[in-house]
Computed example of a mutant assay.
Amino acid sequence: MTADLSARQQDTCIILFAKYPAPNKAKTRLQPALGVDGAACMARQLLLHSIEQAVDTGFAVELCVSPAPTDPCWQALDLPSSLRCSMQTDGDLGLRMLIASQCALQHFDKVMLIGTDCPSLTTARIQTAIQQLNQHDAVMIPATDGGYVLLGFKRVDESLFSDIVWSTPSVAAVTKQRIATLGWTLALFDPLPDIDEPKDLVHLPSGWLDSQLNTKVDND
Rank of each mutant, 00 (worst) to 15 (best):
A172E: 08
G152D: 01
R155A: 12
A18P: 04
T185M: 05
L98M: 10
I130K: 05
T116A: 08
M87S: 14
C85K: 13
T144R: 09
G207Y: 00
R44T: 07
P80E: 11
A100M: 08
Q106V: 06
K110D: 01
G35N: 01
R8P: 03
P205C: 03
M42N: 11
H49Y: 11
L182A: 12
S86R: 14
A187W: 10
F153S: 01
M97A: 02
C85E: 15
G38N: 03
V156P: 06
A138K: 10
D11Y: 14
L95V: 08
F153Y: 13
A43E: 02
P193C: 10
M1C: 07
Q102V: 09
K27G: 11
M1A: 12
A143F: 05
Q177F: 13
P198I: 05
K19F: 09
D117L: 03
P169Q: 05
D220T: 15
S86Y: 14
D163Y: 10
N24A: 07
I195R: 04
H136F: 15
I195L: 02
Y20D: 06
L83N: 06
D190I: 02
D190H: 07
W166E: 01
A187H: 12
L121W: 12
V156K: 00
S101H: 04
W166L: 02
L201E: 06
P191T: 06
A68E: 15
P23A: 04
K154W: 00
L188E: 15
I114N: 02
N134C: 11
P69H: 08
F189D: 14
L213I: 13
V111C: 14
L182C: 14
I99W: 06
A68H: 15
A22C: 07
I130E: 14
K110I: 00
L48A: 04
F161W: 02
C118V: 11
L188H: 09
A76L: 07
T57D: 04
A138I: 15
L5N: 14
Q212K: 10
L201D: 06
D137C: 05
Q106H: 10
A143W: 07
L186F: 09
P72L: 03
L5K: 09
T168N: 06
D37I: 14
A138E: 13
V36I: 13
Q212T: 10
A43T: 05
L121E: 04
A68G: 04
V174N: 13
G147H: 00
R96F: 12
Q135H: 15
T70C: 05
G152Y: 15
A54D: 01
L121V: 04
W208K: 06
A172R: 00
P32V: 00
W74T: 01
K154I: 03
C41V: 08
F108R: 06
L204P: 02
A143C: 10
I130T: 13
T116P: 01
P69A: 01
S211F: 08
D200Q: 07
Y148T: 08
P169I: 04
G58C: 03
D4M: 15
A33F: 00
P191C: 00
R178L: 11
P119S: 06
C118F: 08
T28H: 08
N219H: 10
Q102I: 09
R178I: 06
I179F: 10
L133R: 12
M97D: 03
L95A: 11
A39C: 03
G183Q: 07
A54Y: 04
K176I: 09
